[in-house]
């Protein structure tokens, strides 16, 4: 009897053992499904890149960058749009960074936990999903009309910063939340005030995450056409903005304008313009990756 107890005959798992081959098939199948999903996205990206590169690469030229827009496709450049986009970023980047990080710090470190703050937190995440054209209408109403800024660089930059604010808040909150409680407690236990703990421990530790989120959000803003058009950006501007109140155009607007024209030459320089904007995005994302790997703290 004792001997029988110690032998390996476990009826309960007999059936399961027979199912093993089925489990192995599923094991492989799921890997296949995930690979398929990945391959599809990569394929689409490659198709897009080939499509743009074959059409546009021949038309990439220095003229495209240093010339203003023109009725003749050969003379047309995107200097005004390039400058406009840079001006927009100069307005939007610091503003959305300060407001976004401030909001995130408040929500993570100061806000009491109750139903109202939970509702607020959920809604900020929802805000990140609001269509950009809605932010354009908001910008048109408040900055352009109400504050009388017109279709200026300032109004455009403010609108874009509102657009990316929720994304920065969500990314910053995640980064701040990832700072171990242990480490914060160590700071408080030495008599640090909340401000000292936030400024010396929480923000430095979460900065890589915050900056990565901010840069990714801004690179989304660079590509936004709708809100810029809605607040009244021009499609033909023959000068770079001289101050915050100048009229402007931006790269996606310029590209949108060119693709809408019937002449094939304009289609081609639009493709070249897309290459330039893609390079800018690629550059910004590289900075984000660099910051992440270089400054990431490990715990």
């Amino acid at each position: 009897m004792k001997f029988a107890d110690t032998t390996v005959s476990n009826e309960r798992y007999e059936e399961n053992t027979q199912r093993l081959s089925k489990r192995h098939i599923w094991n492989k199948a799921f890997k296949g499904i995930c690979f398929g999903a990945m391959a599809f996205s990569i394929l689409m990206l490659i198709v897009l890149l080939i499509r743009i590169l074959t059409q546009g690469i021949g038309f990439l030229s220095w003229d495209l960058i240093v010339n203003f827009a023109s009725r003749n496709a050969e003379d047309a450049g995107m200097l005004a749009a390039l400058a406009g986009t840079i001006w927009l970023m100069v307005v939007a980047a610091p503003l959305s960074f300060v407001l976004g990080v401030g909001t995130a710090v408040y929500m993570e470190e100061y806000a009491p936990v109750n139903r109202f703050t939970k509702l607020l937190q959920t809604n900020i995440s929802n805000l990140a999903g609001v269509p950009s054209v809605v932010f354009g209408l908001l910008g048109l109403t408040i900055f352009n009309r109400l504050l009388g800024l017109g279709a200026s660089v300032l109004a455009g930059g403010l609108t874009l910063s509102l657009l990316v604010l929720p994304i920065i808040v969500v990314a910053s909150r995640e980064a701040i939340n990832a700072v171990p409680t242990d480490v914060k407690q160590a700071s408080y236990a030495m008599g640090a005030t909340k401000w000292q703990t936030i400024f010396r421990i929480v923000i430095p530790t979460s900065l890589p995450g915050i900056l990565t989120g901010t840069i990714l959000a801004l690179s989304r803003a660079i590509g936004e056409t709708a809100p810029i058009l809605v607040i009244g950006a021009l499609t033909y501007v023959a000068s770079t903005p001289s101050d915050l109140f100048s009229n402007f155009t931006a790269m996606p607007v310029q590209i949108y304008d060119w693709t809408g024209r019937p002449q094939e030459e304009f289609q081609n320089i639009a493709a070249a313009g897309i290459i330039i904007i893609l390079l800018m995005l690629f550059f910004m994302n590289s900075i984000a990756v660099f910051i992440r790997t270089k400054f990431q703290k490990r715990f």
């Binding site: 171990p180 242990d182 480490v183 407690q185 160590a186 700071s187 236990a189 030495m190 008599g191 640090a192 005030t193 000292q196 010396r200 421990i201 530790t205 703290k297 490990r298 715990f299």
Partner: peptide, 25 residues
């Protein structure tokens, strides 16, 4: 002062860890 269950140094240098307290004061 307090010493915790799990070692919880700051993600800084050894030197920076020790002077954290004196600096905040």
């Amino acid at each position: 002062g307090m010493v915790f269950q799990n070692p919880n140094p700051f993600p800084k240098s050894i030197y920076e860890n020790v002077i954290y307290g004196p600096k905040i004061h």
